[in-house]
Every structure is written in C-alpha cells, then in structure tokens.
C-alpha cells in the first residue's frame, strides 16, 4: 500500500485532522488525569512523542519479520522496551524532570494511541512515512495535552506555566481529575463546531 502524502501532510494530519485527543478520542485516561498544568502536559507529550516515533520506526523496519498472529504482543513488547529505555535515561540524566513525570512515563506502555498507530500505519508503510506519522501523532498529542493543561491551569490555579497571572484561583474544581472530562468534552465540541462552521462557509453541507 503506497502512501502518496508528503511528510508535512503526514505531520499536519496527526496534529489537526486526526488529532489523537480531540478527533480520535484515544488515550483519554492521561489526557484527563495528568493535564493539570501546561508543564505536565508538555513533559508527557515529549515522552509520548519519543516513544511513538521510536516504536513506529522500529515496527516499520521489521514489519516483514512479524508473524501476523503475534503482531499485538510484538507491538507491546516494542513499546515497553522503548518506554523502559526512556525511563532509565530520564532517571539518570534528567532527575528533576523524572521526579515529576516518573509514574506517567511507565504508563505510556498502555497508551492506546501508540498501539493503534503501529497497527494502522507503521506495519504497512515504509520507514520514512512511519517516522513522519509518528512525529505528527506525537505532536498532536502534545499540543492537545498542553491546550487542556492551559485551560485547567488558568481556571484552576490562576497561573500559566507556574506564573501567577490572575492573582486568584477562579475554580479549584478544575484541578481535580473529573474536571478533565469537562474540558476535553467542551474542547471537542469547540473543534467540531469550527469544522462545521468552516465547511458551511465553503458551501459543503455537513
């Protein structure tokens, strides 16, 4: 199956058209649980980006060697290996960041988005395209997490990136995990609305 998209189109696809959080609605658990601040979202995003790119490239390289019946265990194994590697490297060289995101990094093994991209894309496409797709998906996830983090941090603690901008805390509720569902839901509605609006303007009926 040949891919006719250019590298930039693949990246843009991951960020906009198939954004993991807002359009595919995958990996909602971390999106809701961890995105309490912009920084948290950013750090988990970086880790996911790295795991996604590495696993996509690895699977794409060995796609002809994988027995079709054991592809899912192989994906999980690949992801787990990369996650462990990142976990160790972070613990050794960036201890301060690791102290904050340590437990989230181990959770990446179970992220639906990574397995899904390996199954849908990397096991069929060449290495180059898989790299760009992984990059796009990772960036899409990171941007999604940071946007949710921005809303929650601003409304919950009145700060952005740890700097107090409002001087007061509008709604403490937004810090709690349950508020993540509200933010994600509202943002999904917002993005869908923009899409509908955009299509109508162009003359399409949705």
């Amino acid at each position: 199956m040949a891919n006719d998209k250019t590298s930039m189109q693949l990246v843009a696809n991951g960020i906009l058209k198939e954004n993991p959080i807002f359009r595919l609605a995958l990996s909602m658990c971390p999106a809701v649980g961890i995105s309490t601040t912009v920084m948290n979202g950013f750090m988990l995003g970086i880790a996911v980006l790295f795991v996604q790119v590495c696993s996509s490239v690895t699977i794409s390289m060995v796609k002809n060697l994988i027995h079709p019946r054991i592809r899912i265990p192989t994906y999980t194994l690949t992801i787990a290996t990369w996650v462990t590697v990142i976990d160790m490297v972070l613990a050794a060289y960036l201890p301060e960041a690791y102290a904050k995101m340590g437990i989230f990094v181990k959770l990446i093994v179970a992220f639906a988005i990574i397995t899904m991209r390996l199954e849908m894309f990397a096991c069929k496409e060449p290495v180059g395209a898989s790299f760009w797709d992984g990059l796009g998906m990772g960036l899409g996830f990171m941007i999604g997490m940071m946007t949710i983090g921005l809303v929650r941090e601003l409304l919950g603690s009145g700060a952005i990136l740890g700097y107090d901008v409002l001087g007061f805390k509008p709604l403490l509720f937004f810090i709690l995990p349950c508020a993540g569902f509200f933010v994600v839901g509202l943002m999904m509605a917002f993005f869908n609305y923009i899409e509908v609006f955009y299509k109508r303007k162009k003359g399409f009926t949705s």
Binding site: I66, I70, T84, M88, V89, A91, A92, P95
Partner: peptide, 27 residues
C-alpha cells in the same frame, strides 16, 4: 519468534541499564 523478540528487548534494556545505572546513583 516471540522468544527471540523478548531476548532482543531484554538485551536492549539490559544495555541501557548498564549504561545509565552509574549516572543514576551519582545523581
């Protein structure tokens, strides 16, 4: 095949551990 994949993964993780354990302790 599964055993082989596991062995490769174990090798990669082990190598990484050996390379980083000293820096981690020092940290």
């Amino acid at each position: 095949r599964l055993t082989l994949s596991c062995l490769i993964a174990a090798f990669v993780i082990g190598l990484c551990f050996v390379l980083t354990s000293k820096a981690k302790k020092h940290n």
